[in-house]
Nucleic acid binder design. Structure first.
Lengths: 217, 217
DNA sequence: ATTAATTTTTAGACAAAACTAAAAATATAT
DNA sequence: ATATATTTTTAGTTTTGTCTAAAAATTAAT
């Protein structure tokens, strides 16, 4: 598989996790930051290789083969992220771009030895689950902070958006994986929330709350 | 720089270390396992970027800029090899191919943090020196075993050929970096050598002796 | 010093992955 | 139901790095 094919497969996988329905050409083009016509070309190539099932004008879905391949790319990405943070002391907002490159390194033996070296982690630095060598994904129980009821407390277990800017915002507000967050108040006009962290109150927008995963306790 | 440009630069660097004179198109084609016409195309591109100085029909040499860039690629390659052997327990004959991919990962921060994680090694698993972040190469004092005089003893400090088959031959004969080797006899007809390792005598061909570096003691 | 052999370069093509512009299919709105 | 808007596909280019075949330059040989 080429570098580009792997990137498409990964994008289709991520879109599939969210949507269930077939993935549209435009949705892929948007994620890949490319043009719809380029996507069409690539979908034909992936269909030819039986990595996706594709019907003209009807979008795509991953085949079993494509699904497994995508999970292996995600596995590599997330394991490298763990390596970068745990072993090389990168911060969680620095690792995504580097892992985007490292995920394309071929060797299965490498990734399995890396997995062992890292002591078989089940989650990456952003709380996302890491598929094992057979493609099994640990099921992570979580909900968006924006969906948490008033007076309920959750533990931060992941982020939906793992962009540098969002992660740095969280750092600034002293929100990390494992942090306890209690919902104090919800403003119905703009859906902003007042939350309590370590005894301090903090006002956050709905956009922030919609990108933070918590687990209720 | 593209993946392919980096590979050309690295090959030109390796040929330069050996030959001093300008590097011929054919020599590069042979190393790259490609055609001379492809090499010509690439040399024009590298010259355009001022990474090599190139005169039609006269071969190429690296510019200062190209020399530094090449050393950074070699640095990455060798540091990753150390990582694979020291941290992931790969054997020295398995790491070259994987490092060929890893050497193209971009981030400077990554490679400097890796360097630190590995405790700033000066040599890779095959005894080759690792350039530091400024491009300085530790000078390694060594000579080929084939050039060692009779009755002299040397310590194995490196290999010229780091192919899997040669390294596995050395493993089979219990020759590793640090092994003491004494030259007992040289057969002038075929230039084969009788050597002594750990008290045992061993007959090796000139080809073997011509690919093993030793340091006299 | 010519001729022959080798090396190197040019010219033209091709595959991968992207693009633009236009056509076709699907979805939406009145 | 028909017109309009949107989405998707096709057709034709472009760029990167490769190739083959032929031409040009260099090197070797008599």
């Amino acid at each position: 598989m080429t570098y580009s094919e792997e990137n498409y497969l990964k994008i289709i996988y991520h879109l599939s996790v969210v949507s269930k329905a077939d993935i549209s050409t435009n949705a892929i083009a948007h994620e890949m930051q490319t043009k719809a016509s380029s996507v069409t070309d690539m979908l034909k190539k992936l269909a030819e290789k039986e990595l996706v099932s594709y019907q003209k004008y009807q979008g795509v879905s991953l085949t079993q083969k494509g699904f497994f391949a995508a999970k292996m790319i995600v596995r590599k990405h997330r394991l490298w992220e763990v390596f970068l943070v745990e072993k090389l002391n990168f911060t969680w907002d620095e690792v995504h771009e580097i892992a985007e490159e490292l995920e394309h390194i071929q060797s299965d033996k490498l990734i399995n030895k890396l997995d062992e070296f890292l002591d078989f982690p089940s989650k990456d630095p952003h709380g996302d689950p890491i598929p094992d060598r057979n493609g099994n994904l640990p099921k992570v129980e979580k909900q968006l902070l924006s969906e948490l009821a008033i007076n309920k407390t959750g533990i931060c277990v992941g982020v939906k958006d793992s962009s540098t800017s969002f992660l740095q915002y969280l750092d600034k507000q002293k929100i990390a994986l494992g942090t306890q967050i209690k919902v104090i108040e919800k403003e119905s006009f703009d859906n902003s929330l007042t939350i309590e962290i370590n005894g301090n109150k903090l006002l956050i927008t709905n956009k922030i709350a919609g990108n933070l995963f918590v687990k209720t306790i």
